[in-house]
Design a protein around this nucleic acid. Sequence first.
DNA 1: AATACAAGCGCG
DNA 2: AAAGCGCGCTTGTATT
Length: 592
Amino acid sequence: MRLHPRAHRRIRTVIPPGAARAAAPTHRRLLAREGDDAVLLTVGDDLGVLMRERCSTAELGAVVATAGPDVRWVWSDTTRWYPSILATGHIVTRCWDLRLGHALLRGSTLVPESNAAALRKAIDWDASSAEPPAASTPALFDVDDAVRGVPDDPDAVLAEFVRQQRAIEAAPERVRLRLLLAAESAGALLAVELHAAGVPWSREVHEMLLHEALGPRPAPGAAPARVRELAEVVRLALGDPAASLDSQPKLLRSLHRVGVLAQSTNRWELAEYDHPVIAPLLEYKKLTRLLSANGWAWLDEWAAEGRFRPVYVPGGVVTGRWASSGGGALQLPRQLRPAVRADEGWMLVVADVAQLEPRVLAAMSGDTALAQAARGRDLYEGIVGSGVVSTRQEAKIALLGAMYGATTGDSGRLVPALRRAYPRAMALVDAAAAIGEQGGVVTTWLGRSSPPADARWHQIQAAAGEPDATDSDRTHARRSARDRGRFTRNFVVQGTAAEWALAWLADLRGRLAAMPTVDAAARAPASGPVFGARAHLAFFLHDEIIVHTPADHADAVARAVRNSAARAGTLLFGEFPLDFPLDLRIAVDASK
DNA sequence: AATACAAGCGCG
DNA sequence: AAAGCGCGCTTGTATT
């Protein structure tokens, strides 16, 4: 790396300071790179550059801090810029993530086509996946788009910002798009912060849980005692001391030999057979799963320092949900939740939204009957109370079936009753399914659109319409159309729920940042210099959050969590009469 | 030996 | 007890 000339150690202002002062408080500032330096562009309402500054990247944290909390930093990609700024101890309050913005706007049906086309043309987003999908490609859609880059040089950053700004301003629903971009960008900041802060994790509790379930930690390469014992019991029941339990084909053959004629080794199917081998085998599978997914090796690799730090991937799911990579953050088994444990003198505020997706569906469809059923704490009980179905379990299955597109089984059987009781809500998901089946694009409440049907999908549909089409072609086409219909049916609901959750998080993040810090002795050092000093979000999973907070602030945090949920509701749905009740607990650990 | 795929199971 | 959306991860097997 090149050393910077002394002159670069201080910000060099190119525009006279007077103009800069006038511009600074209200205007967005773009960050770009030139060699090893960062370039800062202050942009006016007319999108003209008011000021151009330059500093070394090492000084960026200080520059951000000096600029104050009212600036919205516009940059190519939060994952590229924010970690190093945060590492110097500075929180960025607002940003505009151009990569995420591009991914949203280039495909949104709310953006006028000429603007969307301009965005697509400017950045060759999917250059490497432009060829028609190979015949073997099973995916219905491709999320690679979201991970491609926006260039970092000043001209490109400014040009992309201008394109995105114009795309939004040209849209009749610009208020929604602005909200979506702001929420998505706040999520990008939070994802970096969650990784830095980490989930407080008790090695002691985790080891105790493993010991209880599996026995003492075995030598490397050996199976734990409890697993070995169960394997013996299973092999005895199979009448084969050498039976292999970890290879599906071999296990299936062994099962067949003792009369268990299952088609697969999945546990739901195995559970249907009445044979002495079943119970110990299911227990064996459960324990080996715990061992391989979240055993001692996982603990050593992911939570050794008292924090679990997964990498969150905002926008990583087509619907707008977050994905994660590393450590399986989205799959922490409930069994291990007691290991999520606050530091000494700290508490956890654990909150999840009750039935988020059906509530969101009620609001977006304007279905006041469903909203009425949701008025109490439990939406499913509300449906039972309206006499639509007779048990809570039926209400749940029916509603999930309606949102997922179930056609058979208990779920499919109950959907018609729901359709009669809540015609507006059901019409919304049915319409989304119909559009998907025809190859169309659907859009969430704030403007995230589903990916269009790919070339392979169209090819399958076209083949079924040819004169020489076989029954198999037609069946294939119909199935593929319905698959896509179920996807778009769920997309609008899951995607809007993700938007609600982002709005909740973004608002809460702001409230937590405003909370007081604690003195040195009361800090949680493992959460880092910034978050170890105050209440901070520690975990997020679709509709639930965990805040790690100094014990004295727990009540205030709980109020903030509730207030933010209420705020998210009005931000998205205005005065529509619907609340989003939380199940909220203040506790030392995250177990139920 | 390296890579791709499918099954299975964890989460919402 | 599951058949219907969205994921990530591990394991064993098949492919190269």
